[in-house]
Design a binder for these strands. Sequence first.
DNA 1: TCCTTTTTGTTGAAAATTCAACAGACTTTC
DNA 2: GAAAGTCTGTTGAATTTTCAACAAAAAGGA
Lengths: 219, 219
Amino acid sequence: MKKYLKILKKCPLFAEIEDDSLLRMLTCLGAKVEEFDKKYTILAEGYPATYIGIVLSGSVQIVQVDYDGNRSILSELSAPDVFAEAFACAEVRALPVSVIANEPSQIMLIDCNHILHTCENNCGFHQQLIFNLMKDLATKTILFHQRIEVTSKRTTREKLLTYLSMQAKKANSHSFEIPFDRQELADYLEVDRSGLSAEIGKLKKEGVLDSQKNRFVLY
Amino acid sequence: MKKYLKILKKCPLFAEIEDDSLLRMLTCLGAKVEEFDKKYTILAEGYPATYIGIVLSGSVQIVQVDYDGNRSILSELSAPDVFAEAFACAEVRALPVSVIANEPSQIMLIDCNHILHTCENNCGFHQQLIFNLMKDLATKTILFHQRIEVTSKRTTREKLLTYLSMQAKKANSHSFEIPFDRQELADYLEVDRSGLSAEIGKLKKEGVLDSQKNRFVLY
DNA sequence: TCCTTTTTGTTGAAAATTCAACAGACTTTC
DNA sequence: GAAAGTCTGTTGAATTTTCAACAAAAAGGA
């Protein structure tokens, strides 16, 4: 396990846990590392969700089969991202998604029951782990909530302005960078990319904002 | 506290916890019950999020002040709903919303730190409480995820069909009821109500589905 | 540096949504 | 049981978005 320490320490799930405690804990949790070739299925739709996954190297896709049989890629993750934690914690009977290796990848799998039900050893770091997992879920909830707040606006302009003011508020400044390129921003806002570009252009002309690449200024 | 037992037992946060254990635990957690008159602020935007709230009676609104000063109501909760748990667990510095009493209400407030950091007594039910809280957050994450999956479709028709097939899958039947009236469904799908009604009409004519009130049949 | 690839902005036409207004069906209240 | 209020479906016009196609700009590679 030692060789994965460097990447595991970057994972928010293991924040505030010392190296040796982490190693001991992983053993205690029965964490296992598996290697998957490209296109191999790591977790399969329909199976019970018990495992939490952590990408150690390579990348994975979260894939869903549509009601009319179309496969769609919900997201793509790389190290040290965590996946399936919500499904595992909610104890869903059947995973609604599959997780597929996007390239040869090393994946750590931990049975969520081992996390949630602390062992008799009662290691103090287990507490911290639960705390970290909780924080991860809570943060996701908040981010989703924010996104819905943005996308529930009805026009591209409103969505954009709502999003940008949130970012300005967060940065505590009129000038700030966003973590998206145009296509990604359009996907986030759930609008058409070209329409988004057009709207940004309009707002510039009107003097409402200015932008160059990812940097925006809101007047 | 005893008089609140009946309502608290309905709250998923306290699932699988026996009455007397629950009462002892509430004391241990420093849970307090406060009464708020209509329009009084229970939790104020901008303050640190440390408390988890539970509606015991009455109802509350989750309110947000827009970037241009407009107040908007994000949701309305009644007993035995839980609020602010995500903010508290994520330890956000400033609440992005306010919680206002919508009528005279009794609210239980619990400092989230007391939940997350188990006491030295190490009561077994505290474990269960953490577990329940985790499940609550995980479930919310999943529900938000689903909603985004639905609303990310671009047309009313696609949104509606995506949502309905999810419900059919969940009910494991072509015929099922949804928990929304038309306006609520439109809000959930983020579309115009009248447009939604029109689309349902079209789909009926095309023989894709049938509906009366909340009951839908998908062919 | 040059060439290739990706990203971004622009456009106009087609399609879809929103908006406002109204009428009928259904509920609730007194 | 009548009246008031709410919910739903329908319509047409105005607005907005999407879509496809292209050109300019930026980024990356050889």
